[in-house]
């Protein structure tokens, strides 16, 4: 097994863990955490391919991950504030009980 497949396998495992969390947890914050985990698994793939792929001096993989982390930070901030706003309305963060959009 090449070193690259080790990283890819780790990334696939992290992605599946995040997916299982996002699908099975019922707390909205933990679902968001699962999504963050999936995003980070994708970032690990970018860095691994940059490290072992051709032309690493172009820094494309590194740049993609830096912008991806920036967007993930914006996503986390907006997502958590939406959850706080929804909690203020429904008095819960249980996704089974938040079942309509109308305020």
């Amino acid at each position: 097994m090449s070193p690259l497949s080790g990283y890819l396998l780790l990334s696939a495992l992290l992605f599946s863990l995040g997916l299982s969390g996002a699908l099975t947890r019922r707390n909205a914050i933990l679902v968001l955490i699962g999504i963050e985990l999936m995003l980070n698994a994708a970032n690990l793939n970018f860095i691994a391919f940059w490290r072992y792929g051709p032309h690493p001096e172009m820094l494309t993989g590194v740049m993609f991950v830096i912008f991806s982390i920036g967007i993930a930070a914006a996503e986390a901030a907006v997502g958590l504030s939406i959850i706080v706003a929804a909690y203020r309305h429904f008095r819960t963060t249980d996704l089974d009980k938040i079942n309509f959009l109308k305020g």
């Binding site: 990283y7 914050i29 968001l32 955490i33 963050e36 980070n40 970032n43 860095i47 691994a48 940059w50 490290r51 590194v62 991950v65 830096i66 982390i69 993930a72 930070a73 986390a76 901030a77 958590l80 959850i83 706080v84 909690y87 963060t93």
Partner: peptide, 30 residues
Amino acid sequence: QLGAQFVGLTQLLVYVGAVAILAVFAIMLT
């Protein structure tokens, strides 16, 4: 370890520093 210094340090700052604290705050608020 893969040689991406800047990304590793950014990851530490953003996730370990900011997102974790933000998530804990959201949990405390809700």
